[in-house]
Amino acid sequence: MSGNASAPTTSSASAGTAGVPVPGTAGRLGGMFSELRAAGRAGLVGYLPAGYPDLPRSQRLLRTMIESGCDLVEVGASFSDPVLDGPVVARAQHQALRGGTRLPEVLRTVEAVTSAGGRAVVMSYFNPIIAYGQDAFARDLAAAGGSGVITPDLIVDEAETWLAATESADIDPIFLVAPSSPAERIALTAGAGRGFLYAAAVMGVTGARDSVSSVAPELVARCRQVTTLPIGVGLGVRNGAQAAEIAAFADAVIVGSAFVARAGLEDRAAAEAAIAELATELADGIAGAASDDQETPA
């Protein structure tokens, strides 16, 4: 839905940071964002669940995403109850689970990406990480060469143990903010996270949408008022034009469902070609945006 950013109950409080963005913590992904800044363009982040459509193919497709223009991939860990995901991603996660993919296989997938020279973070609902052990998972992910973890159902208020675990393992805890987040919660979230801040640009579940929500630029602007952490924008992007639009105001464009839908194509070669084509189109769109508009936010 393309509703307006619901002005929540916030009474215009701005967490005592009136107008002064708090420096973000660069983290493991700091290098990538420095390079992107130097190149004057936004980054492209692609998502695919490990184990979808099966484990070897997901590993291959994630490498294809990197080779075809993704600066970073989100290796998806699957969960039985993915409340923030729409039908495409939820079905993919259920298939990955049926195929036996759990966090150990997710870690192997991260390793497959990083050993080929790619950058990877994990996207996971939190209960599997609790079950694995928060310290152990952070440590094992670091050992696999992973840069961080996006946790869509973990709010910073509940993240004390996780923040300690990721700090000691030196990986980035990446949190989400939403159009409904008031300024003080964006500040709180950005202050706890490292690497980048994930701006979920629509109120709703994952899934490709026809148009980029008008809420996205406003949300990113609100984020920039309180933090210097890079802002990645996701939820709903599916083509080069949309990527270009977002790249004009965000530091990274995050694409999930559109990759997942292509990965599910019956024919292996067709799936791989479609994934490569999408990554290329998105990367071209972003590059085009960079040449149109040199004003990439610092």
Binding site: V83, L84, P182
Partner: peptide
């Protein structure tokens, strides 16, 4: 204040819903 009964409870869900939960609390 954070919704805990001993070690149980809290808010383990997406940030997008926090504002709505705050609204209900208020």
């Amino acid at each position: 204040r954070r919704g805990y009964y001993g070690q149980m409870g809290g808010r383990w869900l997406p940030e997008a819903l926090v504002a709505a939960l705050d609204e209900i609390s208020d």
